[in-house]
């Protein structure tokens, strides 16, 4: 009894934090299930009527298109980043040459870079290349801005692979490309997983490049589409909440099924091991 009384403050803090972090999700989902009149009558009722009509509305307004666009551009960019970053990380971490350190710093310094410093030239560049207002316009900046963290994660990981392995391969007449493909890349899988999760989630949520480089609804990614919905749905709160719920759903589902991987991936190089 005394023991459990002593723990009271812990329970209180724990519950307060639970409400603080969790309540907005409860509000979002419960609102998305209300019809408009129910929302105005009882905006805070958690379990009331269950009305799936809002979700149908949201799909009718083109959410599917935004989903597909987001998946397409995020996956394409992340796959390209995984390959390009792994290639660049190989000499950066396993070969000695004069510009090694400088090149590494050049790539890594991209992590602190404010995107705004590149925004106008990239906007002009996409116009000049005829890519403006297409998903392709997003691909270049998405790859480029995912490189720093990816190279950071991959070089750290590659440095820990023992050199003896590739020396043995070299004696067997393996070229650097051979070593990379047959020895390093297969061992890199956990690090590539981290790179994939980190960049995918960041690109899935990316907003500012999409805002600047895409204008027509059929090319919008999910965050941009949500913002567009906001303009049209501002009086239909349950409809907007349905859109927000759907947009958050993929991440939540992935998180539920592989919490540890997602947490590790999202914290990127910051958490080792």
């Amino acid at each position: 009894m005394v023991q459990s009384l002593r723990k009271m403050p812990l329970y209180i803090v724990g519950l307060l934090l639970l409400i603080f972090t969790g309540y907005p999700f409860v509000y979002m989902i419960s609102t998305s299930l209300k019809d408009k009149s129910a929302f105005f009558e009882e905006p805070f009722a958690i379990l009331g009527s269950i009305e799936l009509g809002n979700y149908a509305d949201v799909f009718q307004m083109g959410l599917t298109r935004y989903f597909l666009n987001s998946i397409l551009v995020s996956v394409a960019a992340v796959v390209a980043v995984m390959l390009i970053a792994a290639l660049a990380s190989y000499p950066l971490s396993r070969m000695n040459y004069r510009f090694n350190r400088a090149l590494f710093l050049l790539f890594i310094s991209g992590m602190m870079l404010p995107i705004h410093a590149t925004l106008i030239p990239i906007f002009k560049l996409s116009q000049n290349m005829g890519l403006y207002d297409s998903l392709l316009a997003l691909l270049g900046p998405y790859i480029a801005f995912s490189l720093p963290i990816s190279i950071f994660i991959l070089t750290q990981f590659m440095q820990e692979i023992p050199k003896s392995l590739e020396e043995a391969a070299k004696i067997d007449g393996c070229s650097h490309f051979g070593i990379f493909w047959r020895i390093i890349l297969p061992m890199l899988t956990p690090a590539l997983m981290t790179v994939f999760i980190y960049n995918f989630i960041h690109l899935w949520n990316e907003f500012i490049f999409a805002l600047v480089l895409v204008s027509s609804p059929e090319n919008m990614t999910l965050p941009l589409g949500l913002q567009d919905f906001y303009g049209e749905f501002s009086v239909n709160v349950p409809g907007l909440m349905a859109a927000l719920t759907l947009a958050s759903l993929p991440m939540l589902v992935v998180y539920l099924f592989s919490q540890e991987k997602v947490v590790k991936g999202l914290t990127g190089g910051a958490v080792k091991g």
Partner: peptide, 19 residues
């Protein structure tokens, strides 16, 4: 090994900052 990363990085990061 470095060229693909370097080219993308120069085009979309280094050149824009200088611009």
């Amino acid at each position: 090994f470095t060229a693909p990363a370097l080219i993308v990085y120069l085009v979309y990061v280094v050149y824009p900052i200088l611009s």
